[in-house]
């Protein structure tokens, strides 16, 4: 089974990214595929310069998911609108357009959306 996530909120603002992480980690452990499309402020979760002393580190959590097999893509337009360059995001993820979002909608068996 492939599980899709649309995540529209950023780190340290809402619990959404944490919920996605805890669910995705379990799906991967069960052998499912995970596709995550980060949209709007969701792209900020991939910013590799985020420092979080004494706290969970969101881009590291995203890296962990990607290394465990999750495909993570950030909306390129959303990134540009937030001043995030390709070089700013973790190496395990990429920027991608709506074509990829549509591809995820097509290939996923379940799809979850997390917004405001």
């Amino acid at each position: 089974m492939i599980i899709g996530f649309l995540l529209r909120t950023g780190p340290y603002t809402s619990q959404n990214v944490d919920t996605c992480y805890h669910l995705a980690k379990r799906f991967l452990a069960k052998g499912h595929g995970v596709r995550m499309y980060l949209y709007e402020d969701g792209v900020i979760n991939l910013h590799k310069e985020i420092k979080s002393p004494q706290e969970r580190n969101v881009p590291e959590m995203m890296t962990e998911l990607a290394k465990a097999g999750a495909e993570i893509r950030a909306c390129g337009t959303c990134a540009r609108f937030r001043g995030i360059r390709k070089a700013d995001i973790i190496e395990e993820a990429k920027q991608a357009g709506m074509v990829v979002f549509a591809k995820y909608a097509n290939e996923c068996d379940r799809f979850l959306s997390f917004g405001f």
Binding site: R8, E40, M98, V99, A102, A105, G115, F116
Partner: peptide
């Protein structure tokens, strides 16, 4: 007030444009 409707519009045309 929120960008949700506008961003939703982009998602809709993105999906529809891919024959979904």
């Amino acid at each position: 007030g929120m960008a949700s409707a506008g961003e939703g519009f982009r998602a809709i045309i993105g999906l529809a444009g891919m024959e979904i």
